[in-house]
Computed example of a mutant assay.
Amino acid sequence: MTFTVGYVTHWNMVSPSFMYVISNKTIKKLSVTCLNCRYYGTVPRNISFDTPNVVDFNYSDYLRRESPQCHLDSLAKATLDLHFFEDDKRADVTDLISGLHNVKTLHLTSSTVEVISVCCKGGLPVFNNLVDLVFSSKKEGWKVLLPLLIERSPNLKNLVLSTTSVIKMLSIMKCQGYPSEMKHIRYLLVNMECLEVVKVYVAAEMDDTKKMQLTEDLLKFPAASSKLKIQVM
């Protein structure tokens, strides 16, 4: 079953904290778009999702002060398109992002990356099932969020990065030299043409022998930038 929702909410002086609840035990695919409020002068309201069998979730919305409550235990694929409402950055999306922790394929739009970078105040959950990540960004916030997402996604296999930023330096923290980490570092080196310096900070428990091997492996990677220098620290 597929369920699509698109609505415009209107300001209600009697009940300004009105909440929408989408609750269904059989929906498999859920698409919710709540972006019209900006054009109709209305105020975004709180929304919650009680849809434990949804496997495909597409959500476009403006932020609220309170994060949506999510019951999405069966989630396999999610696309988030979140926006600040009138540049209000006091919201918190921690509960929403935590509700996606079982997802296998995650697509974050550029505006969503900015929102999460600023408003996921409780920190990111561990995405143990996340295999495919599509990550888009036009602003600087991605440089903070992407390393955190990679760190929190131990089984990530495929990373698609789309950014218009001209990045010259990249820092990677607490590197263990795991195959999954090396795969993502290689991807970044091959796709970032303006990169000049990569600083790899190894985990505290890594001994000198492993650090030397890590350095040798990194220096063998192809790179899009002819100016690239790799520093293992």
Rank of each mutant, 00 (worst) to 15 (best):
L30W: 07
S31E: 09
T33S: 02
T33P: 00
C34A: 14
N36E: 15
N36C: 14
C37P: 00
C37L: 06
R38D: 12
T42S: 15
V43F: 04
R45M: 10
R45K: 15
R45C: 12
I47V: 15
I47R: 11
S48N: 15
S48T: 15
S48I: 14
F49C: 09
F49D: 09
P52W: 08
N53I: 01
N53H: 11
V54W: 08
V54Q: 04
N58T: 13
N58E: 10
N58D: 14
N58C: 09
Y59D: 02
S60W: 12
D61G: 00
L63W: 00
R64T: 15
R64S: 14
R65M: 13
E66V: 14
P68N: 09
P68K: 11
S74E: 05
S74N: 10
A76F: 00
A78G: 05
L80V: 10
L80D: 04
D81W: 01
L82K: 07
H83V: 08
F84K: 06
F85M: 14
F85T: 13
F85Y: 15
D92C: 02
D92Y: 07
D95T: 15
L96T: 14
L100H: 01
L100S: 02
H101E: 14
N102R: 10
V103E: 09
V103I: 10
V103D: 04
K104H: 05
L106D: 00
L106A: 01
H107S: 08
S111E: 12
S111A: 12
S111G: 02
V113A: 00
E114R: 05
V115D: 05
C119P: 02
L124V: 08
L124Y: 06
F127Q: 10
D132T: 13
D132N: 12
L133G: 06
S136R: 13
S136I: 14
S136N: 12
S137D: 09
K139N: 01
E140F: 00
G141L: 06
V144S: 11
L146Q: 02
L148F: 04
L148S: 11
L149E: 01
L149T: 03
L149P: 01
I150W: 02
S153N: 06
L156N: 10
K157I: 05
K157M: 05
L161H: 09
T163H: 03
T163Q: 06
T164D: 07
V166S: 13
V166I: 12
M169C: 12
M169K: 15
S171R: 15
S171H: 12
I172H: 00
I172C: 11
